[in-house]
Computed example of a mutant assay.
Amino acid sequence: MHIYDKEFTQTELPMTKQEVRAISIAKLMLKPDSILIDVGAGTGTIGIEAATYMPQGKVYAIEKEEKGLDTIKLNADKFELKNFELIHGKAPNVIPNIAYDRMFIGGSTGSLEDIIKHFLTYAKDGAILVINTITLETQHQSLEILKRLDFKDIEVISVTIGRAKKVGPYTMMFGENPIHIIKVIKSSSNKN
């Protein structure tokens, strides 16, 4: 079920906005029994919403920042998720070494290539990887790594959301930061 931003407990940490979340989750093409690794979970909004689409599946949310852990726990508890596990630590070191079919990367703290290599090692053939980037440098780095590892059909979209706000008697549109969403599918031709 789609969850609106106002339904999440929010703190000072940035949150993936609901429109970007909807597109990112759609790109993951989740199945009811998918196993999703949510790397750089932040406030947990991607993994928590994804868990509602996967009643027989499971989300492993990876977050290294202490300040994000309490917010993620509050939100996971609020939605009474039984298929959501929060793991504190830095990826890829704490990612479970299990077979999975979906990975979302919202933050990588300089370990992007190693995280993608974990995906290549443990994800099933046909698994989907979605990476959200806010900076051009991270987008460029992501594309370079994916090309070097022989990913084919690299899909990249740019999403810009504007929100209407009242300014006196007028309504103006105020833009959010553009987000770049990258999607690839693992195949036997990928290098590791």
Rank of each mutant, 00 (worst) to 15 (best):
I154P: 00
V156F: 12
K27T: 03
I115K: 00
D77H: 11
A76P: 09
L28F: 06
D5I: 06
I181S: 04
L129Y: 03
K6N: 15
G42F: 02
V159Q: 06
K165P: 05
G110K: 11
G107F: 05
G106V: 07
S111C: 11
Y53P: 03
Q56V: 00
L146G: 01
D38R: 05
N75Q: 06
K165S: 12
N132E: 13
E7Y: 07
K124D: 13
V156T: 15
D125A: 14
I145K: 00
I179W: 07
P96L: 09
M103K: 01
I62L: 05
L36D: 01
N192Q: 15
V159D: 02
T43I: 08
I25Q: 04
H88T: 12
K124N: 12
G40I: 03
I115M: 03
M29S: 15
A41M: 08
S34D: 04
E85T: 15
P96Q: 06
L13M: 13
D101V: 08
I35H: 02
E66V: 13
V167E: 15
A41G: 06
A91F: 06
K73L: 12
A91H: 05
T52K: 13
D153N: 14
A99M: 13
M173A: 08
L74D: 13
I95L: 07
E65P: 04
E144A: 12
E155I: 14
D5Y: 03
I3T: 01
M15W: 10
T16H: 06
D125V: 13
K152D: 14
T43M: 05
K6L: 09
K64P: 00
M54F: 02
S142F: 07
